[in-house]
């Protein structure tokens, strides 16, 4: 389809952009700016005081507690990104190349599981993994002792929940870009005598890279902000950044602190994404040279 050139005076262009611009400015850009401003204020007796100083920032950088939670959040998010990205590759490959007859139904089943209320699903995991839950009950039936699997309310359980809730993103993006690969390129590689495995690693995987990367970015960003899984499955024993931010707003009613921590988390996310983007660019330049 050809793109139509439009000037900003054109009514059709105004109609299709202005409402969105207004809404996104009013409820996305301004709130972000507001958050930045709030981080320079203070609180006294649970009330906001417009102090315009760096006290909160000194507090945020000075406390070991915050560093530790931010570090844990970053590590959990990176581990979750690695797991979901690697797991998605064979699944997406099989859906596109092997199960083409069934891939439609499998996709629908996955979409349904994915779009079901995450709070309920996470609760379902608790019931499944509990010491007196389904898994341990079935294992006891097989002759294992009571409470053979004791992972609930630990960081492992949090990770299971995160991978569970985020894996669909990497599967869908990876499958999407694998479906667009020109089949002839793969066949050409076979004709040239490459084995299936070699073709997979040297033709399919590089061509699917955009989808794999998009999925990884999406998962990483979402994983930085998880709150449900550490709370419900992790039992709140090892809180992550989102819980800390929520607490500073709700329990401690310290808006400037919450705003500053929000900005820290956004910056961490942006830095990691920029670093990953830089690495990818360097590798691409090298592989071209």
């Amino acid at each position: 389809m050809a793109m139509q050139d439009k000037s900003w005076r054109d009514g059709a262009l105004q109609l299709s952009t202005l409402p969105l611009l207004v809404i996104f400015a009013a409820f996305f850009v301004i709130p972000l700016g507001m958050t930045a401003l709030l981080s320079f204020q203070g609180t006294q007796y649970y009330r906001l005081v417009w102090t315009w100083d760096l006290d909160i920032w000194r507090d945020v950088f000075g406390q070991w507690h915050y560093w530790r939670i931010m570090w844990r959040t970053l590590v959990m998010a990176l581990v979750c990104t690695a797991l979901t990205t690697v797991l998605a590759v064979p699944i997406a490959y099989a859906m596109i190349n092997r199960l083409s007859k069934w891939s439609h139904h499998i996709t629908l089943l996955m979409v349904f599981a994915f779009l079901t209320d995450a709070v309920l699903k996470t609760f379902g995991w608790v019931l499944f993994l509990d010491r007196s839950g389904v898994l341990n009950g079935m294992l006891a039936g097989l002759g294992f002792g009571p409470g053979a699997v004791d992972v609930l309310f630990s960081p492992t359980a949090t990770m299971i929940g995160m991978v569970y809730n985020l894996l669909p993103y990497t599967i869908f993006t990876t499958a999407l870009s694998m479906a667009r690969i020109d089949r002839d390129l793969v066949l050409a590689s076979y004709d040239a005598g490459a084995t299936r495995l070699r073709t997979f690693f040297e033709v399919t995987l590089p061509l699917a890279r955009p989808g794999i990367l998009a999925g990884a970015v999406l998962v990483f960003v979402l994983a930085l902000g998880v709150f449900l899984e550490p709370k419900v499955m992790g039992g709140g024993t090892s809180p992550m950044a989102a819980e800390l931010i929520r607490q500073s707003f709700e329990t401690r009613v310290n808006w400037p602190l919450g705003a500053a921590l929000t900005i820290v988390l956004i910056v961490i996310g942006a830095l990691v994404l920029a670093a990953a983007g830089g690495l990818a660019a360097i590798r691409m330049r090298r592989s071209k040279a």
């Binding site: 709130p31 507001m34 958050t35 930085l224 998880v226 931010i245 929520r246 707003f249 919450g258 929000t262």
Partner: peptide, 11 residues
Amino acid sequence: PQLLLGVVMLL
């Protein structure tokens, strides 16, 4: 992250 989107808008 959705939570941050929510929190920023809440402010």
